[in-house]
Design a protein around this nucleic acid. Structure first.
Length: 490
RNA sequence: GCUCGUGUGGUGUAGUUCGGUCCAUCAUGUCGCCCUCUCGAGGCGACGACCCGGGUUCAAAUCCCGGCACGAGCACCA
């Protein structure tokens, strides 16, 4: 065996590819809300595989449930946008299940005609008890003509919701009860937010997805292992049709320590109840929140690629993403000074007014002098330090001077650093403006008030606040000079 | 309960297909040191794992059997 000496494999594993076929993957979310962090795994894995094999990735909206998880119209565009943001590429094909209804219905009717699907009028609970005992329901033996009649009634809206369902015939002795004569289409009279009340019969995921994957030529399905039974159901359907089922890979469930379990439906509910400001509330595990806070999509990609495709259920910390993100943004984030709860101090020189500089120069980045510098005026001779840093004694004003703080005065000692004194960050009254930082915490979003050094801030710019961490500029106010920031991470 | 799946350091992950070169990879984390006028970045070092029990074998993280633990599915949701 030609084993490499203990090397860690990097990147995604190889896919099993059939000859020279083009690899076609898909990411198929329900547009019942924008994407969550969990969804981003599907975007990354599928789009990365497409990149690896120069294949295609389809973005498909599985929006065939009008009732329990109804689509949110605004989510279609959000998801398309978020897909591109995360993956760095546009999906090769975008398709909506709800706009393909005629195709699904036609396939269903054909399958009924061929006799391997039937209309079942049993209630869900009646069917379940029969199924659990490996018994056929009375509808199973109806002839094709009767099934077709009932199908017409379903289509025409002559049957109540729950009144009947189309089932795929499978072995009733299958060990897994979930697979026995599984339901493929059901009746929904609730109008669809996009296509309205045109259709009364809607396919369930297992059917819609199975048909569409085949029609789109999907070669590889990569999805969560909660859909393993779905694969088995669909394989049974493919056998009826003589189709070849795509290669399928799974990933396990992921929990983020900081967020716990979450679902799009529960987030949507919380937002609607007003518990969060919106989908991009920084406390939320949504893609829009990460994006708003300033995460680099590369960090999210690296994170999911590194986790790979294990079927283990894992619980992982945001620290891992933060660490990747920090490495990516550190070299480009200018250092800036934000003083929270500022305390004003008079900068005085023991030998008189003239002993203090009128301007001080600071580099924008300690490791990259080519990023330039900024200059702070000191003519007013007042500085601000954070209330948290205030104490009477000697401190080093970072990149400027040692001073002794006594009462409301900071008495100049020397430009040079004299030994082992604490370094604190500060601002000059001449060169700072008011600023606020939104910080998500367990107790809600809190706002830090203070002053930030004056600069040409651009909305969207990421800065590293001295001695605090990374933050993104969210708003600038040319009138009053106020800067609004949002916390990223340390 | 039934069905399916998974078990490698604190957290993740490589290695398991084809048993040896694995006193087990890498990242993250924690701790220590160095560097640095940030609690950032960088450098060095340390800590720390093959679920348990049998079996096969000269040799098992890797194969077999039996446990145990955890998770998911068992929706006319996706």
């Amino acid at each position: 065996m030609n084993r490499e000496k203990q090397k860690k494999r990097v990147g995604l594993p190889e896919l099993r590819v059939n000859g020279t076929e083009e690899v076609v993957l898909r990411f198929a979310p329900n547009p019942n809300g924008p994407l969550s962090i969990g969804h981003s795994r599907g975007v990354v894995i599928n789009s990365e595989f497409a990149k690896m094999y120069s294949g295609k990735v389809i973005l498909r909206f599985d929006d065939t449930d009008t009732k329990i998880k109804p689509p949110l119209p605004s989510a279609y565009t959000s998801i398309e946008d978020e897909f591109e943001w995360i993956s760095g590429v546009k999906p090769d094909v975008v398709i909506r299940a709800s706009s393909r209804m005629d195709v699904y219905l036609e396939h269903a009717e054909n399958m009924i005609s061929q006799g391997f699907c039937y209309v079942c009028n049993c209630s869900a609970s009646e069917f379940k008890s029969l199924r659990d005992n490996m018994l056929a329901c009375p509808c199973r033996e109806n002839n094709v003509e009767l099934n077709l009649d009932r199908w017409k009634m379903m289509i025409l809206g002559e049957i109540e919701e729950g009144g009947s369902v189309v089932r795929v015939k499978t072995g009733l002795d299958l060990p897994n009860p979930a697979l026995r004569d599984w339901p493929a289409l059901r009746i929904q009279h609730t109008p669809h937010p996009i296509v309205g009340d045109k259709y009364k019969v809607w396919p369930l995921l297992d059917f819609q997805s199975a048909v569409e994957d085949h029609l789109q030529g999907v070669t590889h399905i990569v999805r969560g292992k909660d859909l393993m039974d779905s694969t088995r159901k669909q394989t049974l359907l493919y056998e009826h049709l003589g189709w070849k089922y795509p290669e399928t890979l799974y990933w396990g469930r992921v929990k983020l320590h900081e967020f716990g379990g979450f679902s799009t439906s529960s987030i949507r509910e919380s937002i609607e109840k007003g518990e969060f400001s919106g989908w991009d509330d920084p406390r939320l595990p949504t893609v829009s929140a990460l994006r708003r806070r300033g995460y680099a999509p590369e960090a999210i990609r690296e994170f999911w690629i590194e986790l790979g495709l294990t079927q283990k259920d894992i619980s992982i910390s945001m620290q891992t993403i933060d660490s990747k993100n920090a490495k990516i943004i550190d070299s480009e984030a200018a250092r800036r000074s934000f003083v929270e709860e500022p305390v004003n101090l008079n900068l005085v020189h023991p030998e008189g007014y003239g002993g203090i500089d009128d301007v001080v120069r600071l580099n924008n980045h300690p490791d990259y002098p080519e990023m330039g510098h900024r200059e702070w005026g000191l003519e007013r001779r007042t500085i601000q330090i954070s209330k948290n840093d205030y104490f009477e004694g000697v401190v080093r004003l970072k990149d400027y001077a040692d001073v002794e703080i006594r009462g409301e005065n900071a008495i100049f000692i020397s430009r040079e650093k004299s030994g082992d004194v604490q370094i604190i960050h500060w601002n000059s009254s001449d060169s700072c403006v008011k600023a606020e930082i939104i910080v998500p915490t367990d107790d809600g979003n809190i706002i830090l008030h203070g002053v930030i050094e004056d600069s040409e801030y651009a909305v969207g710019e990421i800065v590293q606040l001295e001695r605090m961490g990374f933050a993104k500029v969210e708003s600038t106010d040319p009138e009053n000079g106020n800067i609004g920031l949002i916390w990223l991470h340390g």
